[in-house]
Design a protein around this nucleic acid. Structure first.
Length: 902
RNA sequence: GGGUGAUUAGCUCAGUUGGUUAGAGCGUCUCGUUUACACCGAGAAGGCCAAAGGUUCGAAUCCUUUAUCACCCACCA
């Protein structure tokens, strides 16, 4: 007989358990296969880890992701799938570089990039990234993540770099990647472009100025950014606007606007102009507003760049403004307008400020020469495994992205996010992929005699796009080649993640075995950033989907529903909760009590609650082991001897069924809830108590213990593995045990459920009477039961009722009479009387019965009305009607008995 | 402006295709006898399922409208 320590102390076991798992090699699917733990019929299951950014440490959101993904991985592995969960980290270009810059500035280096230079600066970033990486890996292990570390990847390592260069070249040759001068989102602090979805919006109060360019200009306009008006080339009005339509087509010259440049303003008609907002006319600044840029394209307007990459005014704005900050320039322009009596109104409005998602600095839209991916251009897809698109068909990237979700080759869970996805794709514009930062994949493009430096021969202006560094210019033979200084958007390499991690561009066995991956599990906040980009890149490169299913989880918030942030001081660090309550409790708190795709509110109390549960499971196991003479690891479903044996085995089977269904349907919380109810409410509170009385349950307890440890393992890998080791020795590992098999339908007997319910209700009823009459627990009571048709049932469970209800004596008759000093209650068709002798308070007793009488009468009236309704009887399924009749009959019997007691 | 989600016990949330007298955890109140567990056990209180309409024999569940909150998207200058 094995005895466990009294309380479970996670800190004592977790690290050594993880080490045992790692040493076993079972995180690697090849080893599982070799050891015979996989089932060929099940096939393979693969999932990549959404690579955490190497910008620091893991937060609770990562912990939530790891908990879900490890749950899925362990479930699949135990089911016999050859299961791969592939880990890695993301270099997170801008984010990491920004972070390191900040750190260096804190260390006293004022302008890190300029002072250190590219190589030294990058060395600093790499050092930081390496440290972050190590921390992150350690944290993943603390959570219990069963990832195959032998396959670990990094978005910026050599293998991934080769994949990036290969895809870039292919896209360039297909004409999908082009270099163009266009309006981009520019962050003057990061000194780099941003993709459209990397721009965030923050509501703010701004001043709206209404003014005229000059005294004789016929139309007033309004703006929140007067300084940009120095770059205006048009005024747009709605063609339907009677006030202004007559001016459309006219041109005005404004000399020395704002004391700076001369403006040539053309009046154009644009239907998008709102007649009722502002003055009903828009000053058009093509170079510094996305909307205006598009108007300029449509109307052939000149584009004058008046703000540069530093966020300073250019000389195009006029000599006076050269190198002035936009803020100062704004004040200058306003001052000038006032002085010239052109300012008509100044008011507060709320508008959206565009800010950089990495550093929060205000975005400056400006025209710039950058690399783009064209999402609307068609190309030939040579090898297609996509339903509805044949190999050799002409498609666009947009079409591919729509098609694979439309045809359900990729299923998004919860499906409401499909709508969001389509909406995004429909509005998708060309993706700007070049970044002016240093940390990242250098663009595999070289220029003869350097970029924009001039051309030695006709043809030498053409960029040289190559996977490997070219030695000379193919046009003129010069060896003076200079690589494009820019790097790629971090999402470019992240987009290749599902297949670059499996060895592509080599045709590896992993690629054949594990691609497309089965599941992508990630947060809904990176649906566009990453999920959509992966779909784009993978369908383009391989003609395959990157994954068959996408499960999107919600964000972890604090107990009030606020986003966790350092400044609010409401951050819960997973490492802290692991240290305090254990990794299993931390995992449970992130898995349970939450619906798919919904945000989750977390508090320390919640984790503590689950710590209590882990300890409960430990003690349940401890008790069971005390009652299992010789625990066996392989044990078949035992033969039930008593009613409650049957009941608990049925309940267990039922639970297994529900757990399977919930997990297969991605209802992780539901699965855990079913398990918790079985473990605590049914097993611990009832069956174990009854087992103490009935005795000799070794085999059944053994079977139940094995089964619940297996079922709980994906949720709580540490404690379950530890108990397993305590019982069966460390060389036997739960991680590769077979998932329990479901018994057939013959295993279900309706009667068992009803009968046990009745016995439990009788016990609970007596306990209730005892509490209501304030009888000391130490005092044993005398009871009489009128069991009616259930005589045998009550007799069978005589000892259990007696012990659990704490009775001195129990008499069972078919019909029983109530003594005047007894309290009674009715359970189904059974009457129970408790002798209270002197202790009885007759008034209270009467009141209690009266109350029950009333509520029961109400209940009966309800059913009677229902049954009297012809429509109900006619239309409802027979089973439902029959059920109502039965309920009515039982209630009436009960009512009679209560009445007689009264 | 468009979209999505939430609204169920004091708090946090379940409630899977409409059919129970609507559930759980935490918290609250009473009480602690028992060969696992006080990180526990027993008992109890607590809900017009946001509001109003509609569909149906039957609605927390389906439809419409509204309200409040949160988030996402969008070129309101």
């Amino acid at each position: 007989m094995k005895e466990l320590p009294k309380a479970y102390e996670p800190q004592k076991y977790e690290d050594s358990i993880y080490k045992r798992w790692e040493d076993s090699g079972f995180f690697n699917p090849d080893n599982c296969e070799k050891a015979g733990f996989t089932d060929v019929a099940k096939g393979n299951f693969s999932m990549v880890l959404p690579p955490p950014n190497v910008t620091g440490t893991l937060h609770i959101g990562h912990a939530s992701m790891l908990a879900i993904e490890d749950l899925v991985t362990r479930y699949k592995r135990m089911q016999g799938f050859k299961t791969l969960w592939l880990p890695g980290t993301d270099h997170a270009a801008i984010a990491t570089q920004t972070k390191v810059e900040k750190l260096l500035i804190e260390k006293g280096i004022k302008d890190p990039k300029n002072e250190l230079g590219r190589d030294k600066f990058l060395a600093e970033v790499e050092k930081f990234a390496q440290e972050s990486h190590d921390t992150i890996i350690n944290q993943c292990k603390k959570m219990g993540s069963s990832m195959d570390w032998s396959r670990e990847a990094y978005t910026l390592d050599d293998k991934r770099n080769l994949a990036v260069r290969t895809v870039f070249k292919k896209m360039y040759e297909d004409g999908l990647i082009y270099r163009g001068y266009r309006l981009v989102n520019w962050c003057p602090r990061c000194k780099s472009t941003l993709a459209d979805d990397e721009v965030e919006h923050k509501e703010q109060i701004a001043k709206l100025y209404t003014f005229k360019y000059s005294k004789d200009f016929p139309i007033s306009i309004a703006t929140t950014r007067p300084e940009t008006k120095l770059g205006d080339t048009a005024v747009a009005v709605n063609p339907a606007d009677k006030r202004f339509a007559k001016y459309i087509g006219q041109e005005f010259l404004i000399i020395n606007f704002g004391g700076g440049a001369d403006l040539k303003i053309k009046i154009i008609g644009e239907e998008s102009v709102d007649l009722n907002f502002g003055t009903g006319a828009v000053g058009v600044t093509p170079a510094h507003s996305a909307a205006d840029y598009e108007m300029a394209q449509r109307n052939n307007l000149p584009i004058i760049k008046i703000i540069d990459e530093n966020g300073e005014m250019t000389k195009e704005a006029g000599e006076k403004y050269l190198a002035m900050s936009t803020k100062t320039a704004r004040a200058e322009v306003v001052e000038w307008l006032k002085k010239n009596d052109l300012l008509e109104k100044e008011e507060d409005v709320s508008n959206n400020l565009s800010i950089c998602y990495r550093c929060g600095y205000a975005i400056e839209p400006l025209p710039s020469k950058q690399w783009f991916i064209d999402v609307n251009k068609d190309f030939i897809l040579p090898n297609s495994s996509i339903d509805g698109i044949k190999s050799g068909d002409r498609v666009t990237l947009k079409k591919l992205m729509q098609q694979v979700v439309n045809n359900k080759q990729i299923e998004i869970i919860p499906d409401r996010f499909e709508k969001t996805y389509f909406h995004w794709i429909n509005n998708l514009r060309d993706w700007c992929i070049s970044r002016q930062i240093w940390y990242g994949h250098r663009i595999p493009v070289w220029y003869c005699h350097g970029l924009d430096k001039g051309v030695c021969l006709p043809g030498c202006e053409k960029p040289i796009v190559s996977i490997d560094m070219p030695t000379k210019c193919p046009n003129c033979g010069s060896t003076d080649l200079i690589q494009d200084p820019d790097t790629l958007d971090t999402w470019f390499s992240a987009g290749l993640w599902s297949f670059s991690t499996l060895g592509w561009p080599k045709q590896t066995k992993d690629l054949a075995d594990f691609h497309p991956t089965n599941l992508l599990e990630t947060g809904y906040d990176i649906l566009f950033f990453w999920v959509a980009r992966m779909i784009l890149m993978t369908t383009y490169t391989l003609g395959q989907v990157p994954f068959k299913k996408v499960y999107l989880h919600g964000l972890v918030r604090d107990e009030k529903g606020k986003k966790m942030s350092k400044s609010l001081g409401n951050v819960i660090n997973p490492l802290d909760t692991i240290a305090q309550f254990g990794a299993d409790a931390t995992r449970l708190s992130l898995l349970l009590g939450n619906a798919p795709g919904n945000d989750l509110k977390l508090s320390e109390e919640k984790v503590e609650g689950f710590r209590n549960f882990t300890n409960k499971l430990w003690n349940i196991s401890r008790f069971m082991l005390l009652n299992i003479p010789e625990p066996k690891i392989d044990i078949n479903t035992p033969e039930p001897k008593t009613l409650f044996d049957k009941w608990i085995l049925q309940q267990l089977n039922d639970t297994l069924n529900q757990v399977n269904a919930s997990l297969d349907g991605y209802h992780f919380s539901g699965a855990g809830e079913h398990l918790r109810i079985f473990t605590w409410d049914l097993l611990a509170d009832w069956y174990l108590e009854i087992a103490k009385i009935e005795g000799h349950k070794g085999e059944i307890l053994n079977y139940i213990l094995n089964t619940i440890l297996k079922l709980w393992h994906p949720f709580m890998p540490f404690i379950t593995e530890q108990i397993w080791a305590e019982v069966y020795g460390e060389q036997k590992m739960l991680i590769v045990e077979k998932w329990p098999k479901l018994e057939g339908n013959t295993f279900v007997e309706e009667r068992v459920f009803d009968d046990t319910r009745l016995v439990r209700d009788i016990i609970a009823g007596i306990r209730n009477l005892r509490a209501e009459n304030k009888i000391e627990p130490i005092k044993k009571l005398d009871a009489v039961i009128g069991a009616g048709a259930k005589l045998n049932l009550i007799k069978e469970n005589f000892e259990s009722i007696k012990a659990l209800a704490r009775l001195e004596s129990l008499e069972i008759f078919e019909k029983a009479k109530k003594s005047p000093t007894a309290a009674g209650f009715v359970e189904g068709t059974i009457e129970v009387f408790i002798e209270l002798s002197g202790a009885i308070d007759l008034d209270k007793e009467k009141e209690r019965l009266q109350k029950e009488f009333e509520s029961l009468t109400k209940f009966i009236n309800g059913i009677e009305n229902k049954l009297a309704n012809e429509e109900f009887v006619k239309n409802a399924p027979a089973v439902v009607v029959e059920k109502e009749r039965q309920k009515l009959q039982e209630a009436q019997i009960k009512l009679d008995k209560i009445e007689s007691q009264l």
